[in-house]
Nucleic acid binder design. Structure first.
Lengths: 156, 156
DNA sequence: TCGAATATTTCGATGTATCGAATAATTCCG
DNA sequence: CGGAATTATTCGATACATCGAAATATTCGA
């Protein structure tokens, strides 16, 4: 037997997985449109979120060899998505920063999904929104935890 | 000025994006752990969901040339994740199916996230679950639509 | 029946991401 | 000051995914 609550939980899992699949396809489409590999997207994301970083830092974040990062930055620079500038304190170092236009172009790719989600959200009361927000936050935490478990397992 | 409802919508967008990012990282980790490229994962997913398919069908779904699919199936077969079998009705064709063990191993990678989500869901009333389920469903639809827009744009 | 069409594979070529090792420039420190 | 350490790049090598064209086997249709 199965209670109504259990049925709803099963349904929740199903819908979660479906959204998960759609999310991956969305990000894949964005990558293709920007002509970026998964690694390049990741590096660009780090720089966009953390500000200018050195090649060494990027190599550590992305798990690549120094030579690989140099080549990767070369590619992004050729596409005019990042720029190299000398580090003000240490002349051995280089700072890699994203071009403002790169960010703008990326944001515009999200325009539709943001607008559609906004519209969707208008159908929900404040109380309902709080419920959904709470769930999304916890789901993100659970997903993060699960990713950590997977990546640590691969180091055994 | 900004109403309470508007603030909540902004928060919803923020949490959605965070979950989105975590989801991509989770899938990336799974791909690395299974030693599969993004394309290989996609092909494996098609076969797992739609049942045995021919190389031609897979080539169309994945957007690859026939020769590329042959090589891709070779790789998956070498890893014992799929098997080729003759098509019963047309001896020119080949059917590519996933190994049962491949599915089992994949499911086990989801064990933790499923269990944690189940536990999380227990804190929610039936009414709240329905609210969240409804949102996830619509978010998936919105994401799907957005992906379609992106991919069609690239064909202009 | 027999030529055209279809499905798949093989082969060779190409582009590209990644890496280790060597190099150059700079900083750190004893 | 001067050698060791650090940072980034260059270079050459390697691995690999992808592709077009040719080859093979089979089916379809006039």
């Amino acid at each position: 037997m199965s209670t109504e609550h259990e049925k709803l939980v099963d349904e929740l899992l199903l819908k979660s997985r479906e959204l998960s699949t759609e999310t991956v396809m969305f990000h894949t489409a964005i990558g293709i449109l920007r002509d970026l590999s998964a690694v390049e997207s990741k590096v660009l994301d780090y720089v966009a979120r953390l500000g200018p970083l050195t090649p060494k830092e990027l190599a550590e974040y992305a798990g690549l060899a120094p030579a690989s990062i140099t080549a990767l930055i070369d590619r992004l620079e050729r596409k005019q998505m990042v720029t190299r500038s000398p580090h003000p304190d240490d002349r051995r170092k280089v700072l890699v920063g994203v071009e403002e236009e790169t960010i703008e172009r990326a944001v515009s790719l999200w325009d539709h999904i943001v607008a559609a989600t906004r519209e969707l959200a208008n159908d929900y009361s404040e109380s309902e929104l709080r419920t959904v927000i709470g769930f999304l936050e916890r789901a993100a935490a659970v997903t993060h935890e699960s990713t950590l478990r997977l990546t640590s397992r691969s180091l055994e």
